[in-house]
Structure formats: C-alpha cells, structure tokens
Design a protein around this nucleic acid. Structure first.
Length: 119
DNA sequence: CGGTTGACTTTCG
DNA sequence: GCGAAAGCCAACC
C-alpha cells in the first residue's frame, strides 16, 4: 500500500473529510457521539476510527461537541487534553452536566431532523 | 509493510 | 448498573 507522507489524499481522505464535515455541522449547544458519526457515514468507518481521527484534527473542527456513548468527555482519558476542558467548552455552549459529570444524550444529542430544536 | 495503539460501541455475565 | 471480552478501523512506530 502506497503510504503518502505528510499529505493524505484519496478515498480514505474523503472519509476523513466526511467526519470533519459532520462534526463541523453540529449546531452550538448540541453534541454527537462517535457511534452516531459512524452511523451517519453508513458505518463506513467504526466509532473507534472516528475517535482516532478526531484525536488528530484541525483546530477549526469543533471536536469538543463529540462525546462518547455515555455522554462523558473521552478527552479526559487521553491526557493530551486538560481534564474538564471539553466539559467547560460544552458548558460555554449551554450544555449542562449532571453530578456524574455527564450530559444527557437524550436531550443534547443532535438530530438533523430537529435541526436546533428539542421541544 | 506488519504489529500496536486509541478521544469507541455493543453484548454478555 | 458495572466489568470483561469482542468487534472495529485508521494512524503511528
């Protein structure tokens, strides 16, 4: 397999762009989980790969709007990012966390059908 | 070019 | 509800 240095292109790059496009499309005050992104891409990539790609993404990508299936910030486990940073960024967008340090996916999970309304 | 890792999810006990 | 195991795909070494 021809490994491209520095600059990735091709179909694999298209998937990456698709992931970044979805994450960038998440409205403010709304969140998405890795599994949802994978499902939006018709499961062309696994949630694990989504997380791995978001780990290394452009600064203009609102990666903080992506959390795990538990509604918690997976970035705290990484160590590359200050613990609680993602939560702080989400709170800045109006997201409220519970005592368990998690947000309610039923409330904040972004749904394209509802755009930016949640009754 | 192959083995390991990782910001995951789901299923089973 | 929690812990362990399996499935999963891309990037890194």
């Amino acid at each position: 397999m021809a490994r491209v240095h520095g600059h990735v292109q091709g179909e694999a790059g298209a998937i990456r762009e698709a992931v970044f496009a979805i994450v960038s499309a998440i409205p403010r005050g709304r969140v998405l989980n890795y599994g949802a992104v994978s499902r939006m891409l018709d499961s062309r990539i696994s949630p694990l790969a989504v997380g791995w790609m978001l780990h290394r993404c452009p600064d203009e990508i609102p990666w903080h709007r992506v959390v795990n299936a538990s509604g918690r910030c997976s970035t705290d486990r990484s160590g590359d990012i200050p613990q609680g940073l993602q939560r702080r960024m989400l709170e800045s967008e109006g997201v409220v966390f519970d005592s368990g340090g998690a947000l309610e996916l039923e409330t904040y999970l972004w749904r394209p059908d509802m755009e930016d309304q949640h009754d």
